[in-house]
Every structure is written in structure tokens, then in C-alpha cells.
């Protein structure tokens, strides 16, 4: 479903050039629960961002479900993300002035769905991630784990094709981290959503069905679908 062909990305930091990705190719099927691992600087966040259509590449191409997303203009990319992609961040990135409910519902209102549908789906997904009763709390009043659950709900509520998670457990203690991973795995099984997450944590890597290891901007190993 996702086709990554010989993707290159170069950064200019001051005077020096950094080759973040030096020609990475990979194919990802629908429903995979995949982890991209590697030491810091290996390019995993970059690869995630490129698949997530929020960055531009300097060579190669990416298609998602047949659409050549790498060739899209900014507006088209935005619309594509709106409809098809979900994001989960290491630092949760919830809007602090909105309640848990509003943070999730917001994504649906971007799609111009009717209010009743928004309410239904939002409440349902919040229940699924185990936050029933906490809908009206603002992020400031939620623990790290709870905030990440909201983020997961936000990512999933629009039934995206792909969910991209950049080090989703890095800011959580190991028990909470495990809970989150369990939740994501459940969602993956239930909704058949493709999960791609980046990590350098061994425990997280073990949860994945497929492990791609990056080193210095190139694929070092790819375990393939288990």
C-alpha cells in the first residue's frame, strides 16, 4: 500500500550538509504494525515525516495507495493528511486549551462532518482508549499516559489509512509505555490500520510485527512481515 522508492533527504545545518536519508526503498502492506529503529541521527524521524507527507524529499518517490504523494503540492498534501493520516508524537502535542473531547473532535470537524456524527465517533473512540469520563478534562489535568491515549484517539478517530508515531513511549515510564503499546496493538488488530512507529527502545521494538533498522540514512536490516 505504501511504496517508498530510493528516497533521499539532505539537510543544510549552517555550513554543513547532512545526508539524513541516502536512498531508502521499502514497501509496506496494509495493516502492518511496523517499527523503524536505529540510533539517533539514523534518519528514522525523517523517514516517518516523509511518509507522513509533512516534509519534502530530495530524490526518489513515495506513493500511498497508488497516489504519488511525493509529487503533490502543499495544499494537496494537507488535504491528503487530513483524510488519510494520523499522527502520534513523543510529546503528545495536544492543544492545551481544548478538552480531551475537543482535541479529538477537532480532527473530525476539519472534515466537515455533521455534529451528531462527530459526537458519536469521538465518544466511542475515547471509550475505546479507556478515557470514558475524562472527556471534559484539559491536557493539563491528565497524566502523561492519559494524554497519549487522547493522542491515540485523535489519530484513530478519522479511521486513517496510516498512523505514524514518533517515539510514542519515550516520555512515559515503562509500565505506562507498555499499556500504550498494548492499546496501539489492539487498535491495529481491530481497525486494520497500518501503524508505523519509530523508536530506539528495545521493549518497543519487540512489540512490532516487522522491524526495519536504519543506520546512517540507509536500511541496515528489514525483518519483513512476521
Amino acid at each position: 500500500m505504501i511504496s517508498v522508492k530510493d528516497v533521499k533527504r539532505v539537510y543544510q545545518t549552517g555550513e554543513t550538509e547532512v545526508n539524513a536519508l541516502r536512498g531508502v526503498s521499502l514497501d509496506i502492506e496494509q495493516g502492518e504494525f511496523m517499527s523503524i529503529a536505529g540510533p539517533s541521527g539514523s534518519g528514522k524521524t525523517t523517514l516517518l515525516n516523509l511518509i507522513g507527507c509533512i516534509d519534502k524529499m530530495d530524490g526518489g518517490e513515495i506513493s500511498i495507495k497508488g497516489e504519488a504523494v511525493s509529487k503533490m503540492k502543499k495544499k494537496e498534501k494537507t488535504n491528503f493528511r487530513r483524510k488519510n493520516l494520523g499522527f502520534i508524537f513523543q510529546t503528545y502535542n495536544l492543544i492545551p486549551v481544548l478538552t480531551a473531547y475537543e482535541n479529538v473532535a477537532f480532527v473530525l470537524s476539519l472534515l466537515n462532518l455533521p455534529e451528531t456524527e462527530i459526537k458519536e465517533r469521538t465518544m466511542a473512540i475515547l471509550k475505546e482508549v479507556g478515557l470514558e469520563g475524562m472527556e471534559n478534562r484539559r491536557p493539563g489535568k491528565l497524566s502523561g499516559g492519559q494524554q497519549q491515549r487522547v493522542a491515540i484517539a485523535r489519530a484513530l478517530v478519522k479511521n486513517p489509512e496510516i498512523v505514524l508515531a514518533d517515539e510514542p513511549t519515550a516520555n512515559l515510564d515503562s509500565d505506562t509505555g507498555k499499556e500504550i503499546l498494548e492499546l496501539m496493538k489492539q487498535m491495529n488488530k481491530k481497525h486494520k490500520t497500518t501503524f508505523i512507529f519509530s523508536t530506539h527502545d528495545k521493549m518497543v521494538m519487540n512489540y512490532a510485527n516487522r522491524l526495519v533498522i536504519l543506520h546512517d540514512g540507509q536500511i541496515q536490516s528489514d525483518s519483513g512481515r512476521k
Binding site: G52, I54, K74, K75, T78, N79, R81, R82, K83, L85, F87, F89, T91, N93, I95, P96, F106, V107, L110, R154
Partner: peptide, 14 residues
């Protein structure tokens, strides 16, 4: 900034 980035990633237009 981070919030703006998030909103953009979620599909909000400039």
C-alpha cells in the same frame, strides 16, 4: 510553534 506544526500535520491549511 509546536502546536502549529501539529495542526498542520493534522491537516489544517495555512
Amino acid at each position: 510553534m509546536r502546536e502549529i506544526g501539529t495542526l498542520g500535520a493534522l491537516g489544517m491549511h495555512g
